[in-house]
């Protein structure tokens, strides 16, 4: 009986002492956290992609709560709906911004842009691009080694084995911007998704002079400025032999598309044109 008693007492004392220590330490090192941080974090999609520029959703929530405004904070994964919800929790109003999507600005498929040498290094775009311009004549175009695919946490970008170019899956892309950072050639841009996913952009980043660009790739922008001249909204700028369409100014009138001599301007998800311009229309899916 006494053994039992000793055991019970000993264990009881140890237990009580441990509990006391734990309690004291817990009090001493207590971190007072703004309860809103947790609320905000719960509203976020928990993708932890870092697309907002903060280390994961927790970091984003903490920074957001600490800040006074909603300016500069945007969760590309959750989009407007999430931001509205977060703004409600914090008693602020979210700025309205349009849904974006990643576009790959290179159309140098194997047909359009023949390979002129054979790359034999590690299968990694960053390594290849630090070595040289690439295995085609164009030193601005896609290397096709898939750093963007690796970087995507949403399985939204894949290399098409036919063209050796990455393609974005519209439904999955959250415009987190990981691929934009991963691409050493800066080919990927986040652009407005547009009404009914209709959008127009220059699918080329070649800054060489027209002749040089054309020689290495059939569908390179040669900097002829025809689109620039035809655009009624001043949405197109020319720089370094390359046209760029500002998606804030573009009204999707499609006038620039047929004038491009190298078909380097893409229009996506538009209904087919009346005229026989089959080639210019590259409707996807």
């Amino acid at each position: 009986m006494s053994i039992l008693l000793t055991a019970v007492v000993t264990l009881g004392v140890i237990g009580a002492a441990s509990a006391a220590i734990l309690y004291l330490i817990g009090q001493k090192f207590k971190v007072v956290e703004d309860p809103r941080i947790e609320q905000v974090q719960e509203a976020l999609p928990a993708a932890n992609c870092g697309g907002c520029g903060y280390p994961g959703c927790g970091g984003f929530a903490a920074a957001l709560v600490k800040s006074d405004t909603m300016d500069g904070f945007y969760c590309p994964v959750g989009g407007q709906a999430t931001m509205d919800k977060v703004a409600e929790i914090l008693g602020r109003t979210a700025a309205v911004s349009a849904k974006k999507i990643a576009v790959v600005r290179c159309n140098g498929t194997c047909e359009h842009r023949p390979r002129v040498n054979y790359y034999d290094g590690a299968s990694n775009c960053a390594i290849a691009s630090s070595l040289y311009g690439g295995d085609t004549g164009c030193s601005f175009g896609c290397l096709g080694l898939g750093d963007c695919v690796e970087s995507c946490t949403f399985d939204a970008i894949h290399i098409n084995p036919e063209t050796m170019l990455p393609e974005v899956v519209e439904d999955k892309c959250t415009a987190c911007g990981a691929c934009v950072k991963a691409c050493p050639k800066d080919l990927i841009e986040l652009r407005k998704q547009g009404p009914k996913s209709r959008r127009i952009y220059v699918s080329c980043m070649n800054k060489d002079k027209g002749g040089v660009a054309r020689k290495s790739c059939d569908v390179a922008c040669i900097g002829c400025s025809k689109c620039f001249q035809v655009c009624p909204f001043e949405a197109i700028t020319m720089e370094n032999n390359l046209a760029y369409i500002d998606d804030d100014k573009c009204r999707l009138c499609r006038k620039c598309v047929p004038v491009c001599p190298t078909n380097s301007i893409w229009e996506l998800n538009f209904p087919p044109r009346k005229e026989v311009k089959e080639e210019a229309v590259k409707a996807e899916v």
């Binding site: 040498n117 054979y118 790359y119 295995d135 050796m164």
Partner: peptide, 11 residues
């Protein structure tokens, strides 16, 4: 990418 008659480039 067939390597026929193409120079190999690697680091």
């Amino acid at each position: 990418v067939s390597m026929e008659n193409k120079l190999v480039v690697s680091p």
